[in-house]
Amino acid sequence: MVVRATTQLFRERRRRAADRTFGVRLLGAAAVAALSAVPFALLLVLVEGKWRPLRTVDASAAGRLHHLALDHPAWTSTLRFLSDWVWDPLTLRCVLAVLTAWLLWRRAWRLAAWAGVTAVAGGLTGLLVKTVVERARPSLEDPVARAPGFSFPSGHAMTATTSFAVLLLVLLPLVPRRGRALCWAVAGLSVLGVGFTRVALGVHWFSDVVGGWLLGLAVVASTAWAFEAWRADSGRRRSEMTEGLEPELTETAPER
């Protein structure tokens, strides 16, 4: 009995120590997210340096998709609906807010903190980079859509990347194994679809969308690393990407 009580006390102290460092790890990971995004940094250098091959790709994609949008009004209306309502950043942030509230109700405190910090860090990081780069949006004749603000990186693409990543990594433990591949496919196609709509509507360059994807992945990777570090500190096993960040979520339940 004495040995068991001592072991439980040791485990409890270890968990408390892990909890105290978890917030620091999350904030630190969010602060270095942009710096750890090496692929994004390389793309940013090419954008700022106005690398000719990249500018050619951007101009070619914008021109071809713009002509397609002008020739098919019904197709363009569908893209606007998807971009402005279904995949709009505000819509996705509301979904994440509901998810975070649900996690708090489930008493999954650390997972809720991770989801909230990842969403906020992604939004603030994207806004900061946009303000620093100040890249102008495409200027096309007879535009089919308009958007305010600067162009690089795409806020829609970045928000979609972080939002669908959070949804996947949180909810996968609740999905039967046979259905997880479908969830990954839906999330991946949604993220790609967001990028396509922004270029097809003429409000972003192709490199803006790629930049949003890369920066969003950097933010998620950084905060997910912090979460995994907390799991290691608290003595939990390392989780796999195919099972979500906290496989024990199915065991977490609100107190009655």
Rank of each mutant, 00 (worst) to 15 (best):
P176C: 14
A181W: 15
C183H: 06
L182W: 13
P176N: 15
A229F: 10
V191W: 00
F164M: 07
V209I: 09
F206L: 15
G179R: 11
L171G: 11
L182N: 06
G155N: 09
G212F: 00
R177M: 13
A165T: 07
T162G: 07
F164R: 00
L182Y: 11
H156E: 06
L215I: 04
P176I: 13
A218Y: 09
A224D: 12
S163R: 01
R180C: 01
W225K: 12
A221V: 13
L171T: 08
E228A: 14
G216K: 01
T159F: 11
L168N: 02
V220L: 13
A160F: 07
V194A: 10
A157P: 04
F206M: 12
G212E: 00
V209C: 10
T162I: 15
G211Q: 02
L171Y: 03
G211P: 00
F227G: 09
A185W: 11
T161A: 05
T223D: 12
W184N: 04
G188S: 15
S207K: 04
A226L: 15
T162R: 10
A229I: 10
V175D: 02
R198V: 13
G216S: 03
F196G: 00
P176W: 14
L192Y: 12
S154Y: 04
R180F: 00
A157C: 10
V186T: 13
R231L: 15
A157E: 07
G202L: 13
V203W: 03
P173C: 05
G216D: 04
V175C: 09
